[in-house]
Amino acid sequence: MADSFAIFCFPLGFGRAMAYEVTEEAAYEAAKRHRASILADPANVLPTRTPINRVVFRPVTADIVVAILNENDSGFLDLIQAMEPIGYVE
């Protein structure tokens, strides 16, 4: 199966919702656009900065794929090796 790999993400606000991107550059650009869309409405509260994170995955195994396909929510979490902040958009 595949070796470990990484994707990039940022929070969509103060909750748990995240946006995911394939590349670091795409994550920074998407976070900038998201912040601009929030600023368009002065009633919205905007965090002072939006963290950009690298999500590193373990190598994919058949057991994990089967767990995910059988709708075992913890199967996806088993793939995550680390989530680390790599920068911010202000």
Rank of each mutant, 00 (worst) to 15 (best):
I68A: 11
E21S: 03
V65M: 05
P51E: 06
I38S: 11
A36C: 07
L46C: 09
S37C: 05
E84A: 10
G75D: 01
F5S: 02
Y28V: 02
S74V: 13
R49S: 07
E90T: 12
I64G: 07
V45Y: 02
D63I: 11
F14G: 08
F8G: 00
E84R: 06
A62P: 05
R33V: 12
E90L: 12
Y28H: 09
F14Y: 13
I7Y: 08
A82R: 11
E90P: 10
M18A: 05
A27V: 00
A30T: 03
L12N: 09
T48Y: 05
A36V: 00
R58H: 12
N53H: 04
L12M: 12
P42D: 01
D78G: 14
G75A: 01
Q81K: 04
D73Y: 08
T23F: 06
P85M: 15
I38Q: 10
M18E: 14
V45A: 04
A67L: 06
F5P: 00
I64R: 15
P59V: 05
I86P: 14
Y20N: 00
A62K: 15
M83P: 01
F57Q: 06
R35G: 06
L12H: 02
A82S: 15
T48P: 14
I7S: 05
I64A: 13
Y88F: 15
Y88I: 06
Y20K: 00
G15M: 14
Y88G: 11
D73K: 12
P59Q: 09
L77V: 02
R58N: 08
V56Y: 02
A30V: 04
F5C: 00
T61G: 05
D3Q: 10
P51N: 03
I52C: 08
V55S: 07
F57G: 05
M1S: 01
A2D: 10
P42Q: 01
M18T: 12
V66Q: 10
M83E: 11
R49Q: 13
V65N: 03
Y20G: 00
F57L: 02
R54E: 15
Y20D: 00
L12S: 09
H34T: 01
S37I: 02
N72C: 13
D3P: 09
A82H: 13
T61N: 10
E71I: 07
T23L: 10
